[in-house]
Amino acid sequence: MRYGQFCPVAKATELLGERWTFLIVRELLMGGRRFSELQRGLGEISPALLTARLKMFEEQGLVVRRQIPGQRGFEYFPTQACEALLPVIVALGEWGLLWARQTLSADDFDPEFLMFYLERSVDPAALPGGKQSSSSVSLTSRTNANGGLSSRAKRPSSAWSTRAATSTCGSTPQFEPCMMFGWAIAHTARRSTAATW
């Protein structure tokens, strides 16, 4: 897409204005490297479209594609240009929390997606009182009697498990706190592992 304008906003939009682009950037900045990881974080994107977007990202200098040693697949690493979009993604998320809440519907609420973000965003070893291995907390989710999300870790003694269970959703099905909690984890945990909840 070309706008034909001598304007940095127009030129940036030519690169970033296609559907799914900001979400792919989000996934790359959250640590997704393999095609399957990116696709899992994006949900309904078709493999063909994700392939096309990653190829465009590579051509435009947003990612570097590297062969996985000893395997057929590739990994995608964000370049400095892609990493410079982090404040844009965070600002877009904060704008969405403030101005797009009214567009949330029951179809947008996905406990598995929330758990996916929790699993890859939280380093249990960095949590208060946590001397756990960073790969040892496994999360499960279930719907409570009122339709709201209940989450629990397989290690209920950890401080994070208790807080996560009480912070995601209460006894009523309210989607807003879940979205806020997921987003807070997604960008706060990346900035500071010493964050308190």
Rank of each mutant, 00 (worst) to 15 (best):
A159G: 14
T172M: 09
R155T: 15
R33T: 05
P47I: 14
M179C: 09
A153D: 08
N146Q: 13
P78D: 01
Q132T: 11
P111W: 00
L139A: 06
D108L: 06
A126D: 07
L54V: 05
E58D: 12
L42W: 02
A106C: 11
R33L: 06
F35D: 04
S138W: 09
Q80N: 09
V25R: 00
A126N: 13
M180T: 10
R142H: 11
E59Y: 11
L16C: 07
V9S: 13
V25Q: 01
Q5D: 14
P173R: 01
C178E: 00
K154F: 12
T103S: 08
S171H: 10
E119M: 09
T79M: 01
L104E: 02
P87D: 04
S135H: 08
C178G: 00
S151F: 04
R33V: 05
C7S: 15
E83F: 02
R66M: 08
S192C: 07
G147C: 00
L16S: 03
T162Q: 11
F175H: 06
T143Y: 02
S150C: 13
S167A: 12
M179T: 04
R120W: 03
P156Q: 12
Y76R: 04
P128R: 05
G170Q: 00
G73H: 12
L28P: 02
C169K: 01
L29V: 00
A10H: 07
Q102T: 11
N146K: 05
L28I: 04
D123P: 00
V90G: 03
T188M: 14
S167P: 03
T140P: 06
V64A: 13
E112G: 14
S138R: 15
T79I: 00
T21Q: 09
M30L: 15
C82K: 01
T51W: 10
R190I: 03
E94W: 09
S46C: 13
S158Q: 14
R142L: 06
G93H: 05
Q80G: 07
D110Q: 15
R53D: 03
T143W: 03
E58T: 11
E112Y: 12
V122M: 05
I89D: 01
T140A: 13
G129K: 05
L139Q: 08
F175N: 06
Q39P: 05
T166P: 04
A145W: 05
V63K: 01
L85Q: 00
D110I: 07
R53S: 03
W183C: 04
T168A: 02
P156W: 08
S121R: 04
R2K: 14
R40N: 08
K154H: 12
S36D: 15
F22C: 07
Q102I: 10
A189M: 13
T193N: 08
R34F: 10
G61Y: 04
E14I: 07
I68W: 09
